Computed example of a mutant assay.
Amino acid sequence: MRLNRSKLVGFAGLNKSYFSLFTSPFLALLTTLLVGVSAPAEVFSLGVYFLLATAFLNSYNNVMDVKSDALTKQGFPIPAGVITSAEAMAYSTSLAMLSVIVALRTLFVQIAAGAMLLLDLFLAFLYSTPKVRLKRFPVVKGSTLVSHTFLIPFIVAVLLTERNLLSYSMVIPPIFLMGLGIHTVQDIGDVRGDRFMGDKTIPLLFGTKKAVVFALSLVLSALMYVVFLEVQLKTLAILSLLAQTAMVSLLLFREELWKNVFWGSSAVSFLTLASLLYRCCV
């Protein structure tokens, strides 16, 4: 295989998805920092892992979804003919192997934390792989992605800092609910491809309007939970969730704005997560 500029651009493009290559690892790393991981070696190792694992999740998903992408995402590298499916699979496999190597480093530092990273990789594989394909189940799809971005990094950070997970678990529900709501909005844009692949997302099963109501109920549930939660930046957390509620509410009237709402609410999620996790685990 000859590597030219178009091939390199193709491999780089293989990592792209609505599940951003950079946003997701940054959220995961931010979670670990806010929980209290501070050793430079650990921060660097986790940052590299989150980047590699997200690249694997995205690239493997693009390999498995090549037929539906040919209908809805013709500009992606494989449908566009920039790289072949075999080349893409080799690249994705390489990312998985590198992710395992980095995860093993954490395993030698703290066994349970390393095991959680390996579990994360396994879920990333099951997310798209035929037969199992976690993404074909409603709610399970979003739960897997939220686990990759927040829940598993949170648990890993608590384990590395030798804290009691149960003592800090009260901040998990609102962040998880918020994440599920955002990923439900994301599914609105993938109805055609999901139908082709046989995936059963909320928008596909119940229609866009009911999916918006479902997403809105998740974000509102997170908001109501935070109202009764004791965190240092409670007001900021409430304001950020109110902003997300307002954005998702727009889709009740303008469904075509789903992509703007998805990216807008994703951006605000940084503020929500930071305000809820700030000094949560001291």
Rank of each mutant, 00 (worst) to 15 (best):
S20W: 00
L21V: 14
L21M: 11
L21K: 06
L21F: 12
F22Q: 05
F22A: 12
F22E: 08
F22H: 10
F22M: 09
T23G: 12
T23N: 11
T23C: 10
T23Q: 13
S24R: 09
P25G: 09
P25H: 07
P25D: 10
F26M: 14
L27I: 15
L27D: 05
L27N: 00
A28D: 08
L29W: 09
L29Q: 05
T31I: 09
T31E: 02
T31D: 09
T31V: 12
T32D: 02
T32P: 12
L33H: 04
L33W: 10
L33Y: 12
L34N: 02
V35H: 03
G36T: 01
S38W: 07
S38N: 13
S38L: 03
S38M: 03
A39R: 13
P40T: 07
P40H: 06
V43P: 07
F44Q: 06
F44W: 11
S45K: 05
S45M: 11
S45E: 10
S45C: 15
L46Y: 03
L46A: 03
L46M: 05
V48G: 03
Y49H: 13
Y49M: 10
Y49E: 04
Y49N: 07
Y49Q: 06
Y49I: 08
F50A: 02
F50Q: 00
F50K: 00
L51I: 14
L51H: 00
L51S: 01
L51Y: 09
L52P: 01
A53W: 00
A53P: 09
A53L: 10
T54V: 13
